[in-house]
Design a protein around this nucleic acid. Structure first.
Lengths: 181, 181
DNA sequence: GCAAATTAATGATTTATTCAAG
DNA sequence: CTTGAATAAATCATTAATTTGC
């Protein structure tokens, strides 16, 4: 449809960024005067009206809730039925080859899996990972929702330049780990 | 024949929350050992493998960038060519029918009405909002990207990383193109 | 209300690019 | 210049959500 030149507001990146910052900062349902202020401010970056701001917050909040609902329902599914098909493991017929990490080299070196190979290698050496190997069953026997959300101190809480920090861990030359799916 | 158990990882809400927190906290490309630690930690909440974590960060980062690129390109389009279909303005006579107002929010509907009427009234009185109509031109003549991002003091400002997926409209729908291997 | 059809979201793979080492 | 590791981009494929006709 070539019509409808621009029947609706098209937020500029700056506007979006500001709105999202505001939302993240806790503003979920601005009142009229807040909307007015926001609109005035954002009009600096492009055409905008109060209703745009209003609708943006409405939609954003709604979609947040929607996402949350979705997650919860999925979670309940999982809790109620943690391993939907436990028996199938014996029966894969290579309809779709799980060629994930076959170090056996049937397919020549798949580049994308380099890191993964390293991962598996590390996992095998077992420095940290308690869940030894990538097995089939779940690692828990209580409901996951009942477990506390403990905190890790894996990394600096703010890091932007993570570009080249994975260089020296383990070069894969002795990777014979096979994830038997 | 019952198909494969579950061909792909389905993150639990806890896992998702942890991953998103980590991402927001600045972890964009975890290295091998980080992935191992994260995997070990998340396996507490459900079955997970290193590759899942790896892929999750890959995809999340990629889609973040993608979203950002889309925004920027759209923005540049708008800046460079504010009205891509100028001829249609002539046909476009209207104020858009207030479909908005009919969207039945459950508890927000009445508030929506009230707020919107207030807003429109204010906007019409033209206190702040310069964007008078929909069409033709922007209210600025310098590039918005050159404008500073000043901060409002409507609310506490805390900006961590970027976040959110506010469900863009464009979708390429590559699912139906049957390009067979 | 529901189940098939459609659409959107996202996990998993593949391909291309970048960059450093040799 | 070549090679290989790392990863960004593009694509494929499956699952969840939504729409639609009954």
């Amino acid at each position: 449809m070539p019509q409808a030149p621009s029947t609706r507001w098209c937020p500029t990146p700056e506007q979006l960024m500001v709105l999202e910052d505001m939302y993240r900062s806790g503003l979920k349902t601005p009142n009229a005067s807040q909307i007015q202020q926001i609109t005035a401010y954002l009009s600096y970056y492009g055409k905008i009206e109060g209703k745009n701001v209003f609708y943006w917050f409405q939609n954003h909040k709604a979609r947040d809730r929607q996402k949350l609902r979705r997650r919860l329902s999925r979670h309940h599914q999982l809790v109620l039925n943690p391993n939907p098909n436990p028996n199938q493991q014996l029966f894969h017929t290579f309809e779709e080859p799980p060629l994930y990490l076959q170090q056996g080299g049937a397919q020549d070196a798949d580049q994308a899996m380099n890191l993964l190979s390293k991962l598996e290698a590390q996992g095998k050496d077992g420095v940290i990972v308690p869940a030894s190997g990538f097995d089939i069953s779940y690692g828990y026997d209580v409901h996951p929702c009942c477990k506390p959300l403990i905190t890790l101190d894996l990394f600096p809480s703010k890091s932007t330049g993570l570009r080249d920090e994975c260089s020296s861990s383990s070069k894969n030359s002795s990777c014979s780990t096979s994830t038997n799916l």
